[in-house]
Design a protein around this nucleic acid. Structure first.
Lengths: 140, 140
DNA sequence: GACGGTAGTTGGCACTGCGAACTAATGTGC
DNA sequence: GCACATTAGTTCGCAGTGCCAACTACCGTC
C-alpha cells in the first residue's frame, strides 16, 4: 500500500527539478526546451529525426524548435552532403557557451536542493537514480 | 567532482517523470498542467492566488488554465460569499474521478520505473526523498 | 468616504507540441 | 533505368502554456 510513497516523493522531486530548470533557462532568456536542445547537442551535431527521438518529440515539433533556436543564433542547420534531404543541427559558439553555463547552473542548484545528506544515503540514492535512468534518456 | 553525478541523474529522472506525466495525461485527453491542477485540488477547493503559488505560476496564467479546465467540465469556479473578489476552484465529479485515476497511473508507472529494490534501502530512500521535498512543493 | 492593498481578469506576445498533408531525395526490385 | 515505397524534413492549423502590463472590482483602514 505505501509502496506509492517513494514514487510520490520522486514525482515531487521531479517537479522541483523542473522548476530549477525553468528558472535557470529564464536567466539565459531561453525556454527550458531550448536549453534542453543545447544540452543534447553537446554530444555533437545531430539530425532532426535522431533528436526528435532523443527529446521524445514529433519531427514536426523539432522543426519549429530548431527554427526559433536558429533565429536566436544558438544553433545552425548544416546541410548533409551525402544525403541531401537530411541536415545536422550543431551548436554555434554562443550556443555552446550557454549550454555549458546552463548545465553548470542547473547541476549546482539541484545539488543545493539535495543539500547535505549522509554520504551513505547519497550513494544509495545515486545508485538507485542511476539505475532508473540508465539507457532511457539523453539529457543534461 | 563527482558530486555532480547525483544532480545529473536527478535531472534525467525529472525528464523521465515528465514523460510519464505527459503520457498519462494524454490517455485522459488532458494536458499535464490540467492533470496537475486536478491533483492540487484533491486537497480541497482552493483560491486562484493560492494555487498560483502551489503551481509556481503567475496569477494571470491561472486564469487561462482554470478557464480551459472549466470548459472541459473537470473543475468549477465557486464564488466566495465573504469576499466577492475571490473565488475557489473545486473539482467536479468527473474531475475528481480523473484526478484519482491519473494519480494512480502516474504513481504506478513511476513505481515500475524504480523497480525492485531492497526493502531497507527503499525505506531509507523514502525518508531521504521526503526530506528533500518537504515544505517545498504540493504535487502528486 | 477617500485610499492603498488584494483577488482575479484581460490582451498581447512568444513559444510548445500534435497530426495530417506535403516536398524532395534515397534506395529497391524488376 | 525506372516505377515505387521509404525516409528526412517542412508546412499548416490548432489548442494550449506562461509571461508581463494594465485593468476592474472589492476589501480594509484611517
Amino acid at each position: 500500500m505505501d509502496d506509492t510513497k517513494l514514487a510520490t516523493g520522486l514525482v515531487r522531486l521531479a517537479h522541483l527539478v523542473s522548476r530549477v530548470y525553468a528558472e535557470v533557462s529564464r536567466e539565459f532568456e531561453l525556454t527550458p526546451q531550448q536549453i534542453q536542445l543545447l544540452c543534447v547537442l553537446l554530444d555533437g551535431p545531430t539530425g532532426m529525426t535522431e533528436m526528435s527521438r532523443a527529446l521524445g518529440l514529433e519531427k514536426s515539433s523539432m522543426t519549429g524548435l530548431v527554427d526559433r533556436a536558429e533565429r536566436r543564433g544558438i544553433v545552425v542547420r548544416v546541410r548533409d552532403q551525402r544525403d541531401r534531404r537530411a541536415c545536422d543541427v550543431a551548436l554555434t559558439e554562443q550556443g555552446r557557451t550557454i549550454a555549458h553555463a546552463a548545465h553548470r547552473k542547473v547541476t549546482a542548484q539541484v545539488e543545493a536542493l539535495v543539500g547535505a545528506i549522509d554520504p551513505g544515503d547519497r550513494e544509495r540514492l545515486e545508485s538507485v537514480v542511476t539505475g532508473i535512468v540508465r539507457g532511457r534518456d539523453v539529457l543534461t
